[in-house]
Amino acid sequence: MNVPRVGDTSELVVCEELTRTRIVQFAAASGELSPVHIDEEAAQALGHPTVMGHGMMTLAMAARVITCWFGADALRTLSARFTAPVWPGDCLSSRAVVTSVETVGALTLVGLALEATNGRGIRVLAGQAGVAIDRSQGA
């Protein structure tokens, strides 16, 4: 793998269309069964147009841009804040930008800014990640 440079960017459509089924599957797998995610009437009673996707589901999907770029084993840190809800029908895209590159022994440590947007261009997630590339492997 080539060592990335500050400013290098990768973008990926991580979900063509978020479905209610996917939201319910994530709820079951994660144990996060809040009615706002799985019960249409409860979500509407709280003022939402419909059920909303989980923040952690959004983060997991957004992180794919990083794992596709560097591999899942390279990911060391990941944090985010959720800036807008995701809804059934949303298309989600993710973008990672290299913000720092540091060499420590055989490792290249890469800092990344992470962002996810919906199909309307609204940012739904902003975060940071760190990856470690072991240059001694596969060289």
Rank of each mutant, 00 (worst) to 15 (best):
Q128G: 14
C68L: 13
E102C: 03
V51A: 04
I23M: 08
L114E: 04
A28I: 13
G119L: 03
A63N: 02
R120T: 15
V14W: 01
A28K: 10
T50A: 14
G47E: 07
C68H: 14
G31R: 10
G105E: 03
E32Y: 02
A29T: 13
C91A: 10
Q25F: 07
F26L: 13
T21K: 14
E115Y: 08
M61T: 12
T67E: 04
L109T: 08
Q137E: 14
A116K: 01
E115P: 09
A80E: 07
T103Y: 07
V86P: 06
C15G: 02
V65E: 08
D8Y: 12
G31Q: 00
A60G: 14
A63R: 04
P35Y: 02
Q25G: 10
L46F: 03
L75M: 03
A43D: 11
T108I: 05
A60W: 02
E16M: 01
P35D: 12
M57R: 04
G89A: 01
V101E: 06
R120L: 11
L107K: 12
G119S: 03
S100V: 07
V86S: 12
A113G: 09
A45Q: 11
R120N: 15
A42L: 00
S93N: 06
L125C: 08
A28M: 10
Q44E: 06
L12S: 11
S93A: 12
G71H: 06
A80T: 11
I38Y: 04
E32F: 09
A129D: 08
G31L: 08
A129L: 01
L114I: 11
E40R: 00
E32P: 02
L107E: 00
V124W: 05
I23C: 06
V104W: 05
H37G: 08
F26R: 09
W69S: 06
T9F: 04
V97I: 15
M52G: 02
E41G: 01
G53T: 07
G89M: 07
C15T: 14
V13M: 09
Q137V: 15
S79H: 09
T50F: 08
I23D: 07
T103P: 03
L12E: 13
A139S: 13
E17T: 10
A43T: 02
V124K: 05
M61H: 08
G31P: 09
Q25R: 13
Q137K: 14
L107F: 13
W69N: 01
T99I: 07
F82I: 09
M56A: 13
T99L: 06
V6D: 08
L78G: 09
V24Y: 11
G119E: 05
A139W: 13
I66V: 13
C91L: 12
C68I: 14
V13W: 05
V101W: 05
L109F: 01
I133T: 00
L107I: 02
L107T: 02
R81E: 11
A106Y: 00
L78K: 01
L75T: 03
A116Y: 02
A116Q: 09
L125W: 07
D8A: 03
L18T: 00
A28D: 14
V101T: 09
L107M: 12
G121M: 06
L78R: 07
V101P: 00
E17P: 04
R120I: 08
A63C: 06
G71S: 03
G105Q: 01
V3H: 01
G7I: 12
D73C: 12
P4N: 02
L109P: 05
G71I: 07
R5S: 15
S94Q: 12
V51T: 06
T99C: 04
G89R: 01
T77C: 09
L46A: 07
D134A: 04
